[in-house]
Write a protein that binds this DNA or RNA. Structure first.
Lengths: 220, 220
DNA sequence: ACAAAAGTGTTATTCCTACACCCATGC
DNA sequence: GCATGGGTGTAGGAATAACACTTTTGT
């Protein structure tokens, strides 16, 4: 579960009380039930940690199956990436907290590797899909969105170019409203929202397109 | 397991003799052993069907976990994509055969869905990685490579442009040799090989690059 | 008026597709 | 010579990063 908090990409983890790996931080998860598939199971596990209605996107990452990745009984994990918009502040249990993804202290088992996979996937999909909808608040200025993208991608992002890229792909739509300027003044920023609340690939193939598509498909 | 055969993308399947799903065609696979991870297990399962040295690339696709995807005991499958170069012709057991991916007759269980996922993944990765190395023979002409890409992508591919795209990315290297012309004559074609035998992302991010990279990273 | 923040115009660069043209071989 | 297939040159369209410039607010 990832979220932008205080301008930093953070991951939700809980501190293990009992062996194995006591005191270390683990990702939320649990056993697969007999009557559920892994996606359903993830939703159920999350419900124990946060309000699931605040989770904007969930997707499968990969299977982690090294024979002794967890001491004791063999466990095979199907890792997921979950995203919470930055304007949500879900209540979490006492043993659970958010940590910057770059500095998850003392990760349990192979969970550092899983966080790495999640970060990579997020970075990639921000580039070629509208996945930003799952990180951004409901309404936002381009400035705010720029900060979110920069935090998630790990490098500076230009507000000018971000604006244009997302506009060309019809990913954003203006709400019509304006955000009031800060105490130092400045032009009021226009508010935007994501046009669609679900994942859409906006930049399918950079090369080797089918003939007749000189550029990306036009907006219908 | 996918391979280009007779200019068509084909999938390796075996015909089930016994229930469940007798007579239907299933993908190779089997149970995970106690001392192996899923990647190791896949290699082992494949060894029973083909000479594993002929498999050029294997990667994880996704977990299929619907509670009743297979009758009887609950089974959770980690699906993989495997690729065999077109110049290999592995010996296969009597119940096992290659079928065009578009026309796998009577797929067992949810295997049609898995084949679909494999095809999608292959298509995507051909565009932004050097994955062609796992489909093409050791040495080939651009014409041949064009046919392979067209078969895998499912749409026509221009030899001219394929040549240039792969050249720009330094994915191909000339062997120096020429292929003899066919009976109708024509200029002899230059032979190429893939420069690297392992997966490499050649076209990382179309947009939202870090500052300072006006275009794709230069070749070192 | 001036500083600050937001947004638009414009340019340079690169990439990609399409198509015309040139090259080397067999008959 | 000429048909056939291979390869190169080149032009047109489009996308993106960078940066200059304009707009709108608060002090």
């Amino acid at each position: 579960m990832l979220q932008i908090r205080d301008g930093v990409l953070q991951v939700l983890a809980w501190q293990r009380a009992r062996p194995p790996d006591p005191g270390r931080w683990a990702l939320p998860g649990g056993l697969l039930g007999d009557d559920e598939d892994v996606a359903t199971s993830v939703r159920r596990q999350l419900a124990e940690k946060v309000d699931v209605r605040e989770v904007a996107h969930v997707e499968q990452l990969a299977v982690f199956s090294a024979p002794h990745r967890v001491p004791g009984v063999r466990r095979i994990a199907t890792a997921f990436l979950g995203l919470v918009p930055s304007d949500a502040d879900p209540a979490v249990p006492a043993d659970t907290a958010w940590h910057p993804v770059d500095a998850l202290p003392d990760p349990a088992f192979d969970h550092a590797e899983i966080v790495e996979a999640a970060r990579d996937r997020l970075r990639a999909k921000l580039s070629y899909t509208n996945l930003g909808f799952a990180l951004a608040p409901r309404e936002f200025t381009i400035s705010t969105l720029r900060e979110h993208y920069a935090a998630a991608l790990g490098h500076p992002v230009s507000a000018t170019n971000l604006q244009r890229v997302l506009a060309r792909r019809a990913v954003l739509e203006p709400t019509g409203a304006l955000a009031p300027p800060g105490p130092a003044g400045g032009r009021p920023a226009a508010l935007f929202r994501f046009a669609e609340p679900t994942l859409r690939v906006t930049d399918a193939f950079a090369v080797l397109r089918p003939p007749g598509e000189h550029a990306r498909p036009a907006v219908p």
